[in-house]
Nucleic acid binder design. Structure first.
Lengths: 228, 228
DNA sequence: GCCTGTGAATCCATTCACAGCT
DNA sequence: AGCTGTGAATGGATTCACAGGC
């Protein structure tokens, strides 16, 4: 924290701004550290961890230093402690309640995917507009509900994160419905770019944008170069 | 382009370095512009486009200026021209040949997904280690092949992009196999972070990392704040 | 008058380099 | 001696602000 004095002469407190990329890296470190922990390692230095995560050692130390002092000078970081701390920072390790909207190919694959559950992301409701799909039990314990029940269910089950896997045509509308229902965080798989707004953070995962990226870089490798 | 003189006194040519984020944004602009084009618009200013893409107008002008002068001062950008130019820059608009490795839940959902095809990303082969899956026709025209056939098929069909949808345990090994087969670009959906290497670019799409991000920000909203 | 294209200024993230602790 | 924690330096990307063309 920093102390400042504002125009009225009052002392104000301001948190250090933490880069978005730091948060993303913490999640990556965590996965590596869990792996090392499972293999029985107990201590790691920023240099060693940097090697396996392919980043700069100072980067790791700085990233961690935003949140406290977790290491021992001259020694390194205790793996179990570091794991606990990063989990606390990211508030992973607790169980989150998710709802999915759009039970198509991708939607049902995600519901069936084990990784989410393993990391504490539990789908507890699924919605669709297609009357054919409503009532169907996609996975154990989750029946597809109609959109009309969304707001009520979200509130009743205290759902915290919404996942959009609808076609692009309905993505915006679904986003609005989720926000109205009080959802504060959305993971959007549709190819419509949805923007975070006050009180609701959106992460976009348009696969084809990543492919466009790869395509561009392939061109560069081939030596075609359109830049000035 | 810039002209420099190196230590031996020779004049060397160096391209302006284009930020990675510029490429990502061009893909986003393109999607919006296509939408506008379909709606029949013909001219747009950087300010208007910035509004719908939620970025700074100068950002759009600078991003485009890396590649040429596509606008008309006092008027704006002609939508059909801009669309053509961005497609040329990203080399989208041509058809790319992809192979998928790991025909599980996510893998088969991706193969069945129409969006990839629509944007010129055509899956023309799929691989798995599971003998149960081999020979099965997941989608029209694509039969699951054993891993042993990967190198040969990639070379014969001139496959350019590899998509990894295996469990994390085999992701690294599959990556190596793809690189060996001559693949230059990989989209990795497994939760193992794969690093780009010389001659092969990797884009990672670990969904759970994005969820960890959302979880962190939800915490912030709730007012729990662990930073110093 | 309006909107692009772009050097200059600003803002933000990463890396260096070293003081401080064990 | 070794490795963390962090201010300072560097390096990039974004935004400003205005000259230049329609």
């Amino acid at each position: 924290m920093y102390l400042f004095t504002n125009s009225e002469g009052n002392i104000i407190l301001e948190s250090v701004k933490i880069p978005e990329s730091t948060i993303e890296r913490l999640a990556i470190y965590l996965r590596k550290i869990e792996e090392l922990y499972d293999k029985g390692y107990s201590i790691i230095s920023s240099e060693k961890l940097a090697n396996v995560c392919k980043v700069n050692p100072a980067q790791i130390r700085k990233d961690l230093s935003y949140f406290g002092e977790f290491g021992v000078r001259g020694v390194g970081y205790e793996i179990s402690e570091l794991m606990r701390e990063i989990k606390r920072i990211l508030d992973t390790g607790r169980v989150w309640r998710l709802a999915l909207v759009g039970v198509g190919n991708i939607g049902s694959a995600i519901l069936r995917h084990k990784n989410f559950y393993k990391r504490g992301y539990n789908f507890i409701a699924a919605f669709d507009i297609d009357p054919q799909k409503i009532g169907r039990e996609v996975i154990q314990g989750i029946k597809v509900q109609p959109m009309e029940e969304l707001e009520d269910t979200v509130k009743r089950l205290n759902i915290e994160i919404g996942v959009i896997t609808t076609p692009s045509t309905s993505a915006r509308e679904v986003c609005r419905a989720l926000v109205n229902a009080g959802i504060k965080a959305i993971l959007n798989f549709s190819p419509i770019f949805l923007r975070s707004r006050k009180g609701c953070i959106v992460e976009n995962m348009d696969f084809t944008i990543k492919l466009d990226n790869l395509a561009y870089h392939l061109c560069q490798l081939e030596g075609k170069n359109f830049s000035k």
